[in-house]
Design a protein around this nucleic acid. Structure first.
Lengths: 206, 206, 206, 206
DNA sequence: TATGAATGAGCCTTCATTCAT
DNA sequence: TATGAATGAAGGCTCATTCAT
């Protein structure tokens, strides 16, 4: 009985690793084929395991998506946290745009982002997850905007925060669509635009 | 043989009407169920015809989507034309946002818009159609921005046009995502934001 | 429009024929493999059609069973009606027993009968159908028992009817099990037993 | 090597206990879910062991069923033995009926009984086991019927024994079906019927 | 032109069974 | 002896597409 803890911990670690393996494979497949077109067999192949095994770690295809949404939120929050440090929002957003345009597999693809959002329109579970995730992310942004500059924030006047956050999100998410719809849009152009209009969103003045 | 001309003309008109009927039905179905989840039987039902008949007018499901993208472009161009007249961009965009949020079936749904854009990432035909469509639309916007105000334009300095168009598109398309991800976002908030930041995009000054 | 009726009638006739074809095939498969072990592909093969087509006529596997239960009731009621005429219950029951023992494919097999009854323990829909069917059949039997002999009945005293019907059903259904569990039981033995004990169930006296 | 005997004996005892544990769990699962619907994982859970371990004690699912049939025979024989003692067959049968109707898990459920019997139609091994088991049980009953009343039997005339046993089995097994198909059948009704017709089966007179 | 019956491939999921540990 | 992760083979079902009528 005294040794019961160790095997369990080991097993749980392995289980977590498997879940991760599946999520990575699934994300890859979803990006390539789309959520509905990607088959479980597809994911299993990509993950290098049998299809049946996936069901030991996830309740079903929908469960996988839900987990991916959570991952996305974490990534996004981490990105925001990084921005605090650099404080160079223009460069940061431009880089994300570039990654989106290049379909960089290391970050959540723009296409998957759009597809998940669209899916929220139909699947209640995905809707709930998306909305909750979005709320948290917005709160993060708002806190950063509101915090004084000496605390690493932007010192945006309180009554302006919501409006600014809204605009910033539109801008970023709009760039996700641009990255797909306008493949010849250069990063330079994006940077130019951001340098021209971002300051008014971040300024401490009204 | 001498009468072959007239029936053909008539037939072609009918064919065009049938195509339209199918497209309308398909768009309705895609909005409700999503592109992949909407079945041909579904579309046929909605169009009030048999499933088999659709294949006389479209090569397949993908063909329908391609046609719908073209329709979207036409709608979007018409919207821009309307904006020229009203010139009240804030109200116009806010209304579109409201329709998106309400999932108004009379307008291309935000979800379908996102879904199609995402699909452009995978299907080369859809990509081509999307990119071409986007290019035309951007040109329309640019022309409007550049045209002098006495010609119904905005008189934006030439070197600023691309940047401004880009930002405006990000804003609008970003609102499409907001309409889905942030269901409690009020139109009033959107209007406030637009009134605050849109002017700088439309102003004739640098 | 005036010709709309005829094709529909024809189509409906064909649809009914298809349903019948499927039911016959399904019954065959269920008898051979059992309800759970028989696959839809199996049934489709036996019916000489594709698996997918079955779903045009039945909602699913369960739906088929439900239809079969209804068929069984009709057969059983028809059998009772025949008994009225012949009035030779011993011979009638003995024949059914023989058919059960021979696994005669023209009548509901004893095994399928047992399996369906067992399934009623788990599937609420099957339970409902089984109970309803049983009730109707019991009512038929009771009416026959109670009706006076000049009306083709048995003239069993009213207060005895339920008890007698119960015993008769136990006897018959018990024979279904005997037909399976005791393959060397001869029809002669069954007849002997029936002649010995059935009269007390059918007699008009208390 | 000199110590090989004792551990083996111990081991065999343990093995027997494990088999028993599995059988009890399996029976429970089969009663609840049915033979085909009960999964090995289910049984393993109920038995409080891993799925893989079951295969050390049974060749497979079918093997378990075979063992369960043997158990049933033993139970049934024990029941008959009890009847000798009480000699109140009406009460005994009524009680079994009640347990069947209540789906009492302490007794072989009526549904499982039917399911097994039906399965005998398909699986030769199960058929063999069922037939053998049934034969032994019938012999037990026959012996009891034939034995003189001073020896705890019923003293039924020899030439009548087979017929009476057959009828009694039909009655009991018929009640198994009634317990399922006629859920509103009261125990009182059953008792009334048994009191009315059982005596003629058990009487020492012809 | 129009129908809708029919097909067949493919999807998600389950589960008995095996095997490395 | 015991575990439970892993497999692989079905199974039920859906649906785009074809074709006889």
């Amino acid at each position: 009985m005294s040794t019961a803890g160790k095997p369990t911990a080991k097993a749980e670690a392995r289980a977590q690793a498997q879940r991760e393996r599946i999520l990575v494979a699934a994300q890859k497949c979803f990006v390539v084929h789309g959520f509905h077109a990607a088959s479980m067999a597809n994911i299993a192949d990509t993950a290098g395991m049998s299809a049946g095994l996936i069901y030991r770690y996830f309740k079903g295809k929908n469960d996988i998506i839900l987990a991916i949404i959570e991952r996305q939120l974490e990534e996004a929050r981490a990105d925001v946290a990084k921005l605090h440090a650099t404080s160079d929002l223009v460069a940061g957003i431009a880089e994300v745009f570039q990654q989106w345009q290049a379909n960089d597999p290391n970050i959540t693809s723009a296409a998957l982002f759009l597809e998940l959002t669209a899916e929220a329109t139909r699947d209640p579970e995905i809707a709930a997850a998306t909305h909750a995730s979005d709320k948290v992310f917005r709160a993060d942004l708002a806190a950063w905007f509101e915090r004084s500059s000496k605390d690493g924030g932007l010192g945006v006047p309180k009554q302006e925060v919501d409006t600014r956050v809204l605009m910033l999100q539109c801008l970023i998410e709009g760039l996700a669509m641009r990255a797909i719809s306008q493949p010849d849009l250069s990063v330079a152009q994006v940077k130019t635009a951001l340098e021209r209009f971002l300051p008014s969103l971040l300024s401490a003045q009204v």
